[in-house]
Design a protein around this nucleic acid. Sequence first.
DNA 1: AAGTGGTCTAGACCACATG
DNA 2: ATGTGGTCTAGACCACTTA
Lengths: 261, 261
Amino acid sequence: MGTTQLETVPEPKYWHLKTVLSEALDSEFSVGEILPNERDLAARFGVARATLRQALEQLELEGRLQRRRGVGTTVAPPRMGVAVGTEQHSWPGTAGDAWQPADCTAAVPPAGIAGLLGTDTDTQVHTVRRSRVNDGQPVAAELLYVPETSVPGLTAPDAPSGAARARAVLRELQRLELEGQDRAVELGSARVEDARELDRLPGAPVLVVTTRFFAGGRTAAVSVATYRADTCRLTFGDPDGVVIHHGAGAPSLDTSPEPVT
Amino acid sequence: MGTTQLETVPEPKYWHLKTVLSEALDSEFSVGEILPNERDLAARFGVARATLRQALEQLELEGRLQRRRGVGTTVAPPRMGVAVGTEQHSWPGTAGDAWQPADCTAAVPPAGIAGLLGTDTDTQVHTVRRSRVNDGQPVAAELLYVPETSVPGLTAPDAPSGAARARAVLRELQRLELEGQDRAVELGSARVEDARELDRLPGAPVLVVTTRFFAGGRTAAVSVATYRADTCRLTFGDPDGVVIHHGAGAPSLDTSPEPVT
DNA sequence: AAGTGGTCTAGACCACATG
DNA sequence: ATGTGGTCTAGACCACTTA
């Protein structure tokens, strides 16, 4: 065998493809530009469409591309920084906290949430749906679970339904003294309802931020916020932009205007 | 048409499969148990292997499964909570901060990092590699970028190479007064080197935590830490466990012992 | 109606871990 | 040597958007 064969471990095609495309995106395309369709791209690189799609999926996961069925694949803008830590030590619903209450129902929370709240697994709690919009684009959907004992002013099922009731629950929360809170971030996939609200397909990758609010010596409320992982970079502390980290190890500066309040 | 046709939008097969498997995992399997192989599973459900794999991929993304080439697919334990916010306002390298210095070289950082540090795009900086292990399992790999001006005690290229030099850089950092820091979390995919260290395949989903350290009125160091997204839940604030959020919307309590620190 | 990305199939071969 | 998951192919059809 006279061939050189330097590659002891040949790189998978889709990985190499991803690298090539990534460099092309940096040099030959600008934000918002549409790429050739998948069939053409696959033919151009001499691979099957499934292989090309594997590369595109990774690039989308890293926030480099945006794909929309029936439309095409476009070059995504840099991820926007969304402040998560600045409202520290304040209740949800405080004036100008970037969230917009959408709805409120009484429902039995998932078992895990009930455990955090210390309620029975068959006890209904106020369930407030809120959504967060940045730059005119939906970036997060939230479910806020508030036991009825946390907002005694509303125990009777008299409250109006929908957005009005949501605002009422948030208003009652403000009356409590917030003693502390607690956050966790993990990767998840969008449930059907969240996906619709985030303008993504079900199963799309999301960053799930779970926050516990403490008052009166116990957990007074739990928030589960799902952020679009492709377009969002969660910032804690100073709301200044930080860095964009491309998976390939070539971060670039984020110069977006950071329009968060 | 006399058929019922209630499903206006038929659910994709892989999505339904994922739901079925998820319920099976909750009821019929225990942590660590190995599943039947992909070919058998696909046959059992009457789908192509690629379709089954699409469902398994999602479940792995959500931390429910662990797949290892040549071995098989096993039921993953609940995600472990790794504290990210507790060492707030302390330099990296402080005693018992869960990180283990591995190496240090002088290298030109990626353009984005250079921008954050305010160095020229062709200036070398100390680049410290550290790794973090929880429960005997690698959970994160970090690159810490320290401009030579931040640690003037080491400007000469006399320092020993490798781990010793890494410790020296960290030690010098402690001498500065930390004025603040700044964090951002985003989704990324593991670079080849990180993947090897995290015992994952390249491209595996990771949570990238970028931290800026401020001292002397400027950015004195930048840390880019990549955490395994499948096994880790990043906790901020109190190091107590929070919640596990299964993508399907059925969170369950995390009862793991939280061995942080 | 045409064009896009999303889903699905039925194969094949490869890299890796284990016995 | 065997069995596992990982990669890849060449097609097909579907759901969605836009014109």
